[in-house]
Design a protein around this nucleic acid. Sequence first.
DNA 1: CTACATCATTGACCTAGGTCAATGCTCGCA
DNA 2: TGCGAGCATTGACCTAGGTCAATGATGTAG
Lengths: 200, 200
Amino acid sequence: MNSSEQIARDHALVRAVHDAFMPVDDKTFQAIVDHVTYIEVAKGQEFISQGGLNDRLGVMVDGLMRGVELIDGDDHTQMFFDSPCFVTEYVGFLQRKPASFSIVALEDCRLYVLTYDDLQKLYSMSKTGERLGRMIAEGVIATVVEEVRSFRFDSATERYEKLVATFPRLIQRVPQYMVASYLGVTPESLSRIRAKLSRS
Amino acid sequence: MNSSEQIARDHALVRAVHDAFMPVDDKTFQAIVDHVTYIEVAKGQEFISQGGLNDRLGVMVDGLMRGVELIDGDDHTQMFFDSPCFVTEYVGFLQRKPASFSIVALEDCRLYVLTYDDLQKLYSMSKTGERLGRMIAEGVIATVVEEVRSFRFDSATERYEKLVATFPRLIQRVPQYMVASYLGVTPESLSRIRAKLSRS
DNA sequence: CTACATCATTGACCTAGGTCAATGCTCGCA
DNA sequence: TGCGAGCATTGACCTAGGTCAATGATGTAG
């Protein structure tokens, strides 16, 4: 695949990510493409650094990242980003606050990046952009609300089973201790949960 | 207080609820007021019924409600609505799906109600309305994300302490078993948590 | 005033998950 | 080829929270 084919394929993905929330007309999409910057983040590198500047929204076309908060030296997985998808510490980004967690590449990643200011420009430029922003936010809510529900009323075993069912590919590619922390349990517990499930 | 004073006071509250997310200009606010309907929901009555029609967004100026999901006969508190605030089963409302939980008045409540269709009209009518919708959604995200974080990494005792710190008035007015369910623990556990805290 | 309903508390016991420490496994590297 | 580093697993034990049942408190209708 040559470079312009690659870019075309990438742009199709960028558009698909947006379309997932709302069909995007060509004019709005062109405005997005005109503002993004292409970057690569190598495995192990940070895209966003906890406590640091937090003014970038990524559209990841390739790779896998993890949102991780360090508190008193231990490592709390907040979320995973599995391409193609948006990548950002959403809350801090929107409130113009330092990132509450780091976002680290678990594999080599390729992203198209929009800055906060460019995003605001897009919003003021077009009603469609504004609406897209709203629909993205509304999509995030649906995901997070279900997550709360699951924490409130499901056991760790159920949460693990749901995770496997929803993101089967993810489990293969992420070290188990990160999955454990994402589920809110220790690595030892997750190991036992898996042992129990494979027995039954 | 006579009736027109009451309405003026209510409208100020409706405006304050919206302003909490974004300053609302007079024109946009007038458009909101022109579309809302005033209703009262008596203590014990439902505003939204689980599995039923879910096309109303309330702005509550007075009272207290609880979002409650019934699963296999037991009662799962999803959230509280403490006036002045928006009242809705947000996810289903946005996705035009039946309500995933009921919303029941814990006290006599007074609300101004907007239908889904009226809200969409507001959005298409005004870019400011569209933006307001986005900022409301973004505000909801901040709340829910913090809730997930707390479930993932805090103990039940910590979650209770945070709840008391954040909504001290709520604890006084809500039966303890509902608070327990909101925290994701049994009433017995919450009782012990409170006993332990008052001892120390 | 009584009687019942509705919650809150307490106790005895159980289970899921946490903690700590030892043992295995795998893979990159010398 | 063997050695470490970094995970995963397993065991022994501990603790938070669940379950079930009894006992109190409070409020409300008759």
